[in-house]
Design a binder for these strands. Structure first.
Lengths: 123, 123
DNA sequence: GACATTATACGATTTATTTCGTAGGCAATT
DNA sequence: AATTGCCTACGAAATAAATCGTATAATGTC
């Protein structure tokens, strides 16, 4: 059972899911594009994540190479579950309609959801 | 622009949205059903919320009467917006499909979403 | 009126998270 | 081999949030 990532850790995970493998330096450069933050802060976060088992790291090289140890799918699943419970009293449909209602989806996006619903029903 | 409620504050809001008006005592009793917590903790949280403008309170009576000052709709909208950005890279559709995919919706629930999509398109 | 009960106010502590400074190691450059 | 630069480790400070203890005031009860 994976530990729940904090907000800062989730930002790092997002980058690792995108990049696959990355050094602290690389992650930090990505992160810096969105917000002002020190290098050792990023380092510390990633070290914490390693301690929690959220990332794996290869220490063979001088600058360690990190990769996500938890899947995006599993993590999002767990986050959504918690979010629905806490913010929508457990109702998935309320969340879904709230999300769609405020997002002004394009015709294509609506179609995508319809197709997804169809597929679900035929399972 | 309303301040964002913390996790504990959101729990209180949920109760107030449900009950309409309530004293600290009443809110605390609800809260206690889900988790072990002290009365003054609940009190403090609600005082903080009052300071932030998240609740209104009537001080005419000895035990103050509280009510939500922010709507459930607006609050959920803001929470969802943040959540989609932080956990799903801004993609509403990804959130929606993840949520539906893991919830095993009933036929009725699926129909409800379909109807909602139809209505959206004809707006 | 004294006493018990139940309120609010508020500071202080605890816990979680984020941030950063500094030390020490390794490697490339001169 | 000294200098410079980049790296990790790690403790500690800063921040945010939640929890609680204690003081004090209002109300009801005997």
């Amino acid at each position: 059972m994976q530990e729940k990532p904090t907000a800062a850790e989730l930002e790092v995970l997002a980058i690792l899911w995108e990049m696959g493998e990355a050094s602290v330096r690389q992650v930090h450069e990505q992160l810096s594009q969105d917000k002002e933050t020190g290098y050792t802060t990023t380092l510390k976060i990633m070290q914490n994540m390693h301690g929690k088992g959220l990332v794996n790291r290869d220490e063979k090289r001088r600058s360690h190479v990190y990769a996500a140890a938890v899947s995006q799918q599993d993590t999002q699943e767990s986050l959504v579950k918690t979010f629905i419970r806490k913010a929508f009293g457990g109702s998935t449909n309320k969340l879904v309609m709230q999300a769609l209602g405020q997002s002004e989806p394009s015709k294509e996006e609506i179609e995508e959801i319809r197709a997804f619903l169809d597929k679900m029903e035929n399972k």
